[in-house]
Amino acid sequence: EPLWIRPDAPSRCTWQLGRPASESPHHHTAPAKSPKILPDILKKIGDTPMVRINKIGKKFGLKCELLAKCEFFNAGGSVKDRISLRMIEDAERDGTLKPGDTIIEPTSGNTGIGLALAAAVRGYRCIIVMPEKMSSEKVDVLRALGAEIVRTPTNARFDSPESHVGVAWRLKNEIPNSHILDQYRNASNPLAHYDTTADEILQQCDGKLDMLVASVGTGGTITGIARKLKEKCPGCRIIGVDPEGSILAEPEELNQTEQTTYEVEGIGYDFIPTVLDRTVVDKWFKSNDEEAFTFARMLIAQEGLLCGGSAGSTVAVAVKAAQELQEGQRCVVILPDSVRNYMTKFLSDRWMLQKGFLKEEDLTEKKPWWWHLRVQELGLSAPLTVLPTITCGHTIEILREKGFDQAPVVDEAGVILGMVTLGNMLSSLLAGKVQPSDQVGKVIYKQFKQIRLTDTLGRLSHILEMDHFALVVHEQIQYHSTGKSSQRQMVFGVVTAIDLLNFVAAQERDQK
């Protein structure tokens, strides 16, 4: 057995438009009618409502009807409940999964919650491996369901041993009777949507819809739904939504950006999952974080739909894509998950301010006199920076000697690579993860907040409520011999709460 199987392995699926269902090699399930009293909570997966979006479509000038398939009504709160249950049931049916076995899954959280929910009911041990950027709410729900959680670096490539995929496979090879159901490759993922989600949409719309818009992560949702719609409703256009920084969209030119990270969760990847059939997507749109969270908040405030950030991405694209539809036509959007997962993220004004998705003037509360002053007023001194090749031991000596707790790590040209902190280095040394002679590049981390000289002290204040420091950066445009230009970030300084307090105190003292 291989040590790991690539999540982007070539698909062996034989589905073709027009091929009889009787030739399918898979076990198919028909939607079942729910009894009045459910035998367990797993029976509350599927049969989610279709809700008309009344205000947002009109606000953006849509002539067509805009409908939302509300997947956050599933038992675990997301569309991923469907595939989690289906993968477990299919693994039980073919004898792969037996009582007492362990389920391991690399996930952005929602599939993990679905699997942990099913594992709690069915009696399996469950280990979820997820990147650090995923919300604390997801972690809390997983723990409450009895799952064990392993976190991995957000910026690790999918084929790196440190990625959530790599760590999951390492655990599988170490733990007896453990299984990775593997949402990236498992046919049960798109089949769950082909058999149930798509049929529900067709039934709820009486077979009449002209466009379907869905955000894409593993691709199982859009693949399964689109294949069924292509068979039953061939005139329906399928629109895929991919965040900026991901590479799922086609044509490839759409993916060209210097951005590699994004805040919206559960969609987009740096590889093409095996289950994603991009041939059934008629057109791709890219979405960005700001519009995703703005539209998610709009869905909550104006439509009462308590959905997550990827739902915002989907609707932001839908109001663009559906401009081509006329009166009497219908566009369906998939709202994948609930706001429950993001209470401390985009639902929080403070978080939105820190990330730059909300401006101070958007909030009406009274601010102190210094709130709208610029960061450049602080008069920061030149920063202490270190090269990635310097040793951890030497870096600790320098920081202690100069009285700093942290320093930016830059390359020879001064471009920011990340940050090192005294606390992080000492804990890594004590844990045996690094040696004093190791290069400081081994303990770089990139989960820090950046701020510009033109940003306000109010925004800085919000950042420092949650973080010990902020890195002050400025952009530099560099022209190359080819005539092309590129933008790079340079370090201007490091600012802490002490710097802000000293500035405010000094100004008030001078005024007296």
Rank of each mutant, 00 (worst) to 15 (best):
I238R: 00
G240M: 00
D242Q: 03
E244T: 08
E244K: 11
G245P: 03
G245I: 00
S246C: 00
I247Y: 08
L248K: 05
L248H: 06
A249E: 06
E250M: 12
E250C: 09
E250T: 10
P251G: 09
E252V: 13
E253P: 04
N255I: 05
Q256S: 15
T257N: 14
T257S: 15
E258R: 12
T260C: 09
E263M: 09
G266M: 00
G266Q: 01
I267W: 03
G268K: 01
D270M: 04
D270Y: 01
F271R: 00
I272W: 04
I272E: 06
T274H: 04
T274P: 05
V275S: 04
D277W: 00
D277Y: 02
R278A: 04
T279C: 15
T279A: 12
V280Y: 14
D282P: 07
K283E: 14
W284F: 04
F285Q: 04
K286W: 00
S287W: 01
S287M: 11
S287K: 08
D289V: 00
E290N: 12
E291D: 13
E291H: 03
R297S: 01
R297T: 01
M298V: 12
A301P: 03
Q302N: 11
Q302W: 11
E303R: 05
E303P: 03
E303C: 03
E303W: 02
G304E: 01
L305C: 06
L306M: 12
L306Y: 05
C307R: 02
C307P: 05
C307D: 03
G308F: 00
G309F: 00
S310H: 01
S313G: 11
T314W: 02
V315H: 06
V315N: 07
A316Y: 12
A316F: 13
V317F: 05
V317R: 07
V317D: 07
V319R: 02
V319G: 04
A321F: 07
A322D: 05
Q323T: 11
Q326G: 12
E327M: 02
E327R: 12
G328A: 04
G328H: 08
V332E: 03
V333Q: 02
L335K: 00
S338A: 08
S338T: 06
V339M: 09
V339N: 07
R340D: 03
Y342H: 04
Y342P: 00
K345C: 03
K345R: 08
S348I: 05
S348K: 12
D349Q: 08
D349G: 06
R350D: 10
M352P: 02
M352C: 09
M352Y: 04
M352Q: 01
Q354D: 10
Q354C: 03
Q354F: 13
Q354Y: 04
K355M: 12
K355I: 04
K355A: 07
F357P: 03
F357T: 04
F357C: 08
K359P: 04
E360S: 15
E365H: 14
E365L: 13
K366Q: 11
K367W: 15
K367M: 15
K367V: 13
P368N: 09
P368G: 09
W369K: 07
W369N: 06
W369S: 02
W371K: 11
H372R: 04
H372C: 14
L373P: 11
R374D: 02
R374I: 12
R374E: 12
V375K: 06
V375S: 08
V375N: 13
E377K: 13
E377D: 10
L378N: 01
G379I: 11
G379S: 10
L380K: 10
L380C: 08
S381D: 13
A382G: 15
L384R: 07
T385W: 05
T385A: 14
V386Q: 08
L387M: 14
L387Q: 13
L387N: 10
P388W: 12
P388Y: 09
P388Q: 10
T389S: 09
I390G: 15
I390W: 15
I390K: 02
C392S: 07
C392Y: 14
C392V: 15
C392G: 07
T395M: 05
I396N: 13
E397L: 12
E397V: 10
E397A: 15
I398Y: 13
I398V: 08
R400V: 14
K402D: 11
G403H: 08
G403P: 08
G403E: 08
F404D: 01
D405Q: 07
D405W: 12
Q406V: 01
V409I: 13
D411W: 12
E412G: 13
A413H: 02
G414R: 14
V415N: 02
I416Y: 11
I416W: 05
G418C: 07
V420M: 12
V420R: 00
T421I: 14
T421S: 11
L422F: 14
L422H: 09
L422R: 15
L422G: 11
L422W: 07
M425P: 08
L426Q: 07
L429H: 12
L430T: 15
A431F: 02
G432Q: 03
K433Y: 08
K433Q: 14
K433I: 07
V434L: 13
Q435R: 11
Q435P: 11
Q435F: 15
Q435T: 12
P436A: 15
S437A: 13
S437I: 12
D438T: 08
Q439R: 10
Q439P: 10
K442W: 12
V443G: 14
I444F: 02
K446S: 15
F448W: 13
K449F: 09
Q450T: 10
R452C: 14
R452W: 12
L453I: 14
L453M: 14
L453G: 07
L453W: 08
T454N: 14
D455K: 04
D455N: 07
D455E: 11
D455T: 11
T456G: 13
T456W: 13
L457A: 04
L457P: 02
L457Q: 02
G458Y: 07
G458C: 07
L460C: 08
S461Y: 05
H462G: 15
H462R: 10
I463D: 08
L464P: 07
L464R: 04
E465R: 10
E465A: 08
M466G: 13
M466K: 14
D467A: 15
D467W: 13
H468Q: 12
A470D: 02
L471G: 09
L471Q: 07
L471C: 09
V472L: 14
V472G: 12
V472S: 10
H474V: 11
H474N: 02
I477Q: 08
Q478C: 14
Y479I: 12
Y479Q: 14
Y479L: 14
H480D: 11
S481M: 13
T482N: 15
G483A: 14
G483F: 14
K484N: 13
S485Q: 04
Q487G: 15
Q487N: 15
R488N: 11
R488L: 12
M490F: 15
V491T: 04
V491G: 13
V491E: 09
V491Y: 08
V491F: 14
F492N: 12
F492Q: 11
G493D: 13
G493N: 11
V494N: 03
V494F: 12
V494K: 04
V494G: 03
V495F: 14
T496D: 05
A497F: 01
A497R: 11
A497P: 02
D499Q: 05
D499N: 04
D499F: 02
L501G: 02
L501F: 09
L501M: 12
N502V: 10
F503K: 02
V504C: 09
A505W: 02
A506R: 09
E508V: 13
R509L: 14
D510M: 10
